[in-house]
Amino acid sequence: MFRLSEIEHTFRLPPHRLDRPLAEAIKGELESLFVDKVIAYLGLCISIYDIRSIDGGFVFPGDGASTYTVKFRLIIFCPFVGEVIAGRLIDSTDEGLKLSLGFFDDIHVPVSKLPQGSCSETDPDNKGKVRWMWNYGDGQKFPIDNLDEIRLRVHDVRYPKVPLEQESSSKNEEESSSKNEEESSSKNEQKSRSKKPFAPMEIMGFLDCDGLGPISWWV
């Protein structure tokens, strides 16, 4: 689930950090730069493990701060494909499940990767949500709920590209159609459904295997 990666980074050390010894000041600046950020095709940075070397300290003309080149190691969260991890259910819709590890919320299990013979029921408590059930042959149904941890196998780790532009054209459309209230409201509904906040890193999970799914199924 976790691993180390060695990084070299050249950056400007702002002078307000200089009230601490240099090594600590640099560590503080690195933490604000990297911790809790996703590096594409590497993973989510958890913490600065250690600092290997500090070079430089050059002050560029016209700049009120020194620039350092630092080699350091980061603790990276990036489960490998095929790894089994345990998370908790945070969302269950007709598109599949969404699970969370507490510090990482973008784990998706699409419908095609649910246990074979899964069926959904509309959730009476939450509008627009569904409850997934595993239909185990002889009429027994096992619900997937957030009562206990769910084990999943990592199927794929994706790093979607950062969207460059807001969807301005669709906004205009919305304005033009605002005269017809019914139409716009139905469109809005569709939009809110398809609209997902951008996630720089997504883990696709897999549940269709003996031993995967809520722990209570197997223990």
């Binding site: 689930m1 976790f2 060695e6 980074h9």
Partner: peptide, 17 residues
């Protein structure tokens, strides 16, 4: 930023904790 070594060793959950 330059990635010198992408995989500089795996860590168990225990080591991170």
């Amino acid at each position: 930023m330059k990635i010198l070594e992408e995989y500089a060793g795996a860590l168990t959950n225990f080591e991170v904790l």
